[in-house]
Amino acid sequence: MADALLQLENVRAGYGEAVVLDGVSLTVPQGGSLAVLGRNGVGKTTLLLTIMGFVDLMQGSVSFRGQDISRLAPHRRARAGLGWVPQERDIFASLTVEENLTATARAGRWNLDGVYSLFPRLRERRSNMGNQLSGGEQQMLAIARTLMTNPSILILDEPLEGLAPIIVEELIAKIGAMASEEGMALVLVEQHAEVALGLTEQAIVIERGVVAHAARSADLLNDQATLDRYVGLNLVEN
């Protein structure tokens, strides 16, 4: 595909002897968005870590803007424009909120003013240390910190996990606005299938290390049988 932004071909990856992903292919076009669904432990986080270069790639390739980045160090992938927001948020505890935002910032559309108007609460907490934030604030900071690197694709790993419903709604709205208004490409790993499908154009379901199902998000949202089969209770629960 000519206009592919991020492309994985036949990726086999894992930790040492343990193969977690075995033959995963996917494509995210410029400005496109992809939901990655699946039960716990099927390799969704490993997939994102493989894209970022933290996991041993045993076979296949990862390319970004048409360049093969399979052998590139993680920090070079980040600088190339991959905007990863880790699952554990990984806020730097000994940095203030503002230092968390500026320490890794790169010039571009997003700056301090931009992320502060996106998440006004961060402006109020700007001098707090990274370890003095609530879970919701940490997630906002994690997203804002990645935006400050001005990535061309945002890679979110379960951004709504463990957050209060009201924060979840706020974040959903902001992530949705970013994808539709800013034209930011998006890869979203999420347990809440309904939310993830509502925010994205395309979706894949991972099962035992392979892509078990791929569909347009809108179609999958109406395909209750497939969702039940691969994703389980999450749709009903929410």
Partner: peptide, 24 residues
């Protein structure tokens, strides 16, 4: 300084620092 903040970030969490573009 920004370099100081990067040192502290790299110490706090090496993987996150790399994933955000710091050459740890």
């Amino acid at each position: 300084t920004r370099f100081g903040a990067q040192v502290r970030a790299a110490v706090d969490n090496q993987r996150a620092a790399q994933g955000l573009g710091i050459d740890v």
